[in-house]
């Protein structure tokens, strides 16, 4: 059991080896270095939303069990979205983007960063909507480019979500429902490849209970 160095509240252990965690009690962002805990600031509370996912929601994806361990909420001029960090038992992480009731499950693909369009983006030149990029034989097209800022966060995360943190996000779409996104922030640029899903396609359990909404039969 570890405790928040700021307020002393117990910090849940979610089985993911990421350096940052946020105290649910006092919103302190805590950096874990081995056995030492250091408070490095306060993070914004995630604004209220209707998301059916909460920290602790479990998923079964391709036979592997994942647990939602952290979340970042991003805002841009056209709205906002959630990115949930899912932890697998071996310490592996996946990101689950949530927007408009749809889910984009991605894993990092460092090899995509060798593509000329991705390299140009890493150097600060944003692509245009409609420009293409090919990964694993799939033709992706840029569907939008967003300037996003962190609106709040919770749980365990691999990076510090302090106020003012922002990034540029490029989303790509492909005919078969595959998803690709490039993200660039002050720390660097990364590529994420995955697929679009409806919630029922992720076999979720321990979803958030929302008053007035019974759990659909497909999710029970």
């Amino acid at each position: 059991m570890i405790h928040c160095p700021s307020c002393g509240a117990a910090l849940p252990v979610r089985g993911l080896s990421v350096p940052y965690t946020t105290c649910t009690h006092c919103q302190s962002l805590i950096l874990r270095k081995g056995q030492t805990l250091e408070e490095i600031g306060k993070v914004a509370e995630v604004p209220f939303d209707i998301s059916p996912i909460r920290l602790g929601t479990r998923f079964t994806i391709a036979g592997i069990e994942y647990t939602a361990a952290g979340r970042v909420r991003w805002g841009w001029s056209g709205g906002s979205w959630n990115e949930w960090l899912l932890a697998a038992p071996g310490g592996e992480g996946r990101w689950l983007g949530e927007a408009m009731g749809l889910y984009m499950l991605t894993a990092q693909r460092p090899d995509v960063m060798t593509d000329p369009l991705a390299r140009a983006f890493a150097e600060g030149r944003d692509p245009l909507v409609g420009q293409g990029l090919e990964v694993d034989g799939i033709a992706f097209e840029v569907s939008d480019v967003k300037q996003a800022e962190c609106l709040g966060s919770e749980g365990d995360l691999p990076f510090p979500t302090l106020p003012g943190w922002s990034m540029t996000n490029v989303d790509f779409r492909a005919p078969g429902g595959e998803a690709l996104s490039l993200q660039r922030d002050a720390e660097g640029t990364s590529a994420w490849l995955g697929t679009w899903h409806e919630l029922s396609g992720l076999s979720p359990r321990a979803l958030r209970e929302i008053e007035g909404w019974p759990l659909p039969a497909a999710l029970q």
Binding site: A174, G177, L199, L207, L215, P216
Partner: peptide, 26 residues
């Protein structure tokens, strides 16, 4: 809207109705 399922559409055209589901792919 349903928080567990997402969004759908109902289109009403001259008393006739259609149910719409957004496509994930193209």
């Amino acid at each position: 809207f349903n928080p567990y399922v997402g969004y759908r559409w109902l289109i009403e055209w001259d008393g006739e109705w259609q149910f719409g589901t957004p496509l994930l792919g193209r």
